[in-house]
Every structure is written in C-alpha cells, then in structure tokens.
Simulated assay, not measured.
Amino acid sequence: MTSNTRKANLINAITPVNRGLQMSENQRKMIFSAVAYLEELNPSSSPNNTPELLDGNWLLLFTTSQELLGIDRLPLYKLGNIYQCLRVAEGKIFNVAEIKGLPLLSGIVSVCANFTVVSEKRVKVNFERLVAGSQTLIGYQDVNSFIDTLRSPKKLFAIDFQIKREDQQGWLETTYLDQDLRIGRGNEGNLFVLRKI
C-alpha cells in the first residue's frame, strides 16, 4: 500500500470525528491503526533536520488532547480552528485556538513556547506565554497576522501573561512528516495529526 493510500485512509478515518470531539471506540481504533500504518512509511526519518518541511502553519485535523478538546465544552462557545505554527529558525511554537461564540464573544487562546532539538525526531518544549481574549479586542484577522502581533513587543488588550515554570517536562516528537501532513506525539501520550496550510 502506498503512502498516498495510507494518507487517504487516515484522512477518511478522522474526517467524521470533528478532531476527536465525537468519536466511538471503533473510530478511535481505526484512526490509531491508520496512524501506525502511515508512521511505518515516514519519508522523513530525521524531521528535525528538514526545517523547510517543519516550518510554517499547521491546521489541527485530529488530537487526543483533552486540554484542547475541552475548550469545546464551555457554555456558549464552540471550538474553531486550531493551529500550531512553527518558526524553526527562531525555535518557537505558537499554538492558536479560535473560539466561536455569539457575536462579539468569539475568542482566541494562544500559548507560545520555545523549543530545543534533543534528537532527530524530538524537541523539548518550554511554554512561555499565554494570551486569551476577544478576537475583536485583540484585532484578530488571521493566524499569520496574529503571530506577527505576538512577536511584537506590543501589549495586547487580553489576558496576557508569562508562564514561569522551571520544571517543565514537555516534549513533542514528529513521527511522520511530508510536504503537507505531520503526525506528532507529546509527552502526555497525546496524538496530533496536522495539515500544512
């Protein structure tokens, strides 16, 4: 079976589960099986040595992270798009979740981190900053311009604070990477499937 067929199988398996929010045990098994089959054909055995593939904005297609999926369980809010934006040359990761609400209640939650390469597949992640607030008050247009805003010294009209914890143990391992699809696994056992945009 070719990697394109295996990719198609994975996409078909994750499409109906709304990023993992509505998933039966059978669907979960199918997704994990499709992921494992695709990881066997990983064209990038050392993804951290291919920054041109890693770098950019990635849209989350599927995750097992209850921290992320839990946002959808807030009253009056629905989880919009979730992005993981990698700026490899700077060693930065920007996680951005769009939250849909009533007019003027749409929000944004972002966690900024730095990362250091520890192996060909794994990076150590240190979370540095949390930003949460109204899309309107922050002036959110799209993920790219928001990343530019986060990188500027400008203080945002939002909950905006530094995360100061010395004991962080976070890591992220890229287990599959090609031109437009990335599979990652985190230190808490979470699985992430993302598509480059």
Rank of each mutant, 00 (worst) to 15 (best):
P103S: 03
A34L: 08
E120S: 14
F157C: 10
V118G: 01
L53E: 06
L41I: 11
N57W: 06
L137Y: 03
N26S: 15
E120Q: 08
F192P: 04
E98K: 04
L38C: 09
Q179M: 13
N144F: 11
S145F: 08
Y37L: 15
G189A: 07
A13F: 05
L76D: 12
P16F: 01
G139I: 07
S106V: 01
A89E: 15
K124I: 01
V118R: 02
Q141G: 06
D148V: 14
V17N: 08
G20R: 04
G107Q: 01
F157N: 12
V193H: 03
K154A: 12
M30N: 13
L86C: 10
E188P: 00
E39H: 02
R185S: 14
E173S: 12
L172S: 09
S119C: 09
L41P: 04
Y140H: 08
S33Q: 15
K154N: 11
E173I: 05
Q168D: 08
L21T: 10
N18L: 02
V125S: 01
K155E: 14
T149N: 14
N126M: 11
L130Q: 15
A158V: 03
S152V: 04
V117A: 05
P47G: 07
S33L: 14
K154W: 03
A34E: 07
L74A: 14
Q84D: 09
N114V: 13
Y176M: 07
N57T: 15
F127K: 09
L150Q: 10
P51T: 08
R19V: 05
N57D: 11
Q135K: 15
K124Y: 02
A34H: 06
W58Q: 03
R165A: 14
K155V: 11
I159E: 00
D160W: 01
C112Y: 00
G101A: 09
G184M: 13
F146M: 02
W171S: 14
M30C: 12
M23F: 03
G170F: 09
F192S: 00
K121P: 05
R151K: 10
A89D: 13
A34Q: 02
S65V: 01
T5S: 12
Y176G: 02
Q66R: 10
